[in-house]
Design a protein around this nucleic acid. Structure first.
Lengths: 209, 209
DNA sequence: GTAGATCGACTTGTATGCAAGTTGGATACA
DNA sequence: TGTATCCAACTTGCATACAAGTCGATCTAC
């Protein structure tokens, strides 16, 4: 069955892209009207997309004033990282001891490609691979709710993550940490793997705050 | 500043209440029109509320057909409980060793009241207290995102939880488990507290599946 | 010049009408 | 009676009009 893509869905994707690509000046108000003109559709689907994005924390609709694309606050970054720590370490605990060779091979291929990005300083590709590393673990555990939720959290941190990787040192460090996680999983050392993930995530959190 | 309550908000609350109180026959379609008549407002705010509820997993809007209030599936229950395990045990790890006397006193007062509900078989009040027990821990850790998210998960399980407590034995068991968690926290035994919470949640999960 | 009132151009919130798709039942026909 | 067809009454998706609130420029009074 072919699922028809509604205008609301198109609006959602386009506006979200505008936000994560930082096309909007933060803390500056825009209007539903200007967006509907830009996207060549009426206010209704635009508004529905905006309500969804508001629920996901990307923006705030202020009555009679407009739409504010909010900078993710310090507190929110902290909250998101707590969620990541809680969920990613849980998944790791569950996965440890249940992974097969082809899983490791894939994870290692991701790592290898990331190391190549280090040389070419291809931050965009690096970030995609980093994301895939973490999301692969969720997919493997196959909990749809976790996959969805973490994807949204990741989107919210996108522009911030970009800034964090401006220094090449951080990229190199994160590669090493990923390697240690894989290694611990390979040797079936559950608590070691969780501990390495904890270092990885808390390190990222500290760097952002 | 007084926050004005919009019609959309009212619709959201009322429809959600209708769902959690099982006023709708599951897997039976209703329409935006009938709802807007029932709530005495136009389709617009009703529709916005429905879109939000759809995102939260309470229902599904089927194009050209209507709204289906879905029974929470086995897989979703499993996913939700995984989330609970991940997050609640994380919070417990962070809280252990950082609680004060007045925290314990409050938790114990909740427990005491729950035990009274056992005698009177007041399931409704029991469930409220159980919810408060868990939510108090989130609030104390003061992560707004966790508080919100877990509240939504709890709502989704509401009607199912009700059914689980039809047996008085389960209520008694959960009380004992809460007591053990408090006790472990009191004696600053972090891992014991996490372990007891694990037993508590995994037990609930198993009972539901 | 300055404080205050006023008005108009914005904004979102809500109602309503129409387009397009689905469905179930009446109806025609063998 | 059984079957195919068609139509009317539904449904949601979207466009649009209007209501009500906000805010800043402008004008007035002093």
């Amino acid at each position: 069955m072919r699922v028809r893509e509604t205008k609301k869905d198109i609006a959602y994707q386009k506006i979200k892209k505008l936000i994560t690509d930082r096309e909007f000046i933060k803390n500056h108000t825009i209007s539903e009207n200007s967006l509907s003109k830009r996207l060549k559709m009426s206010r209704t689907p635009v508004r529905e997309a905006l309500l969804q994005l508001q629920m996901e924390g990307f923006l705030k609709i202020v009555p009679n004033k407009g739409i504010v694309v909010t900078e993710t606050s310090i507190n929110e970054v902290r909250d998101i990282y707590d969620m990541r720590i809680a969920i990613e370490e849980f998944v790791l605990r569950e996965l440890a001891g249940n992974l097969e060779d082809h899983h490791f091979e894939y994870l290692e291929s991701l790592l290898k490609e990331q190391e190549e990005c280090l040389k070419t300083t291809d931050t965009t590709r690096y970030l995609k691979l980093d994301r895939e590393f973490h999301e692969f673990l969720f997919r493997t555990y196959s909990n749809a709710m976790i996959v969805d939720y973490m994807s949204k959290m990741r989107d919210r941190l996108h522009s911030i993550n970009y800034r964090m990787l401006e220094s090449n040192d951080n990229m190199r460090l994160f590669c090493r940490e990923h390697a240690r996680i894989i290694e611990a999983l390979r040797s079936n050392d559950k608590e070691k793997a969780v501990q390495e993930m904890d270092i990885h995530l808390k390190g990222g959190k500290t760097r952002l705050l």
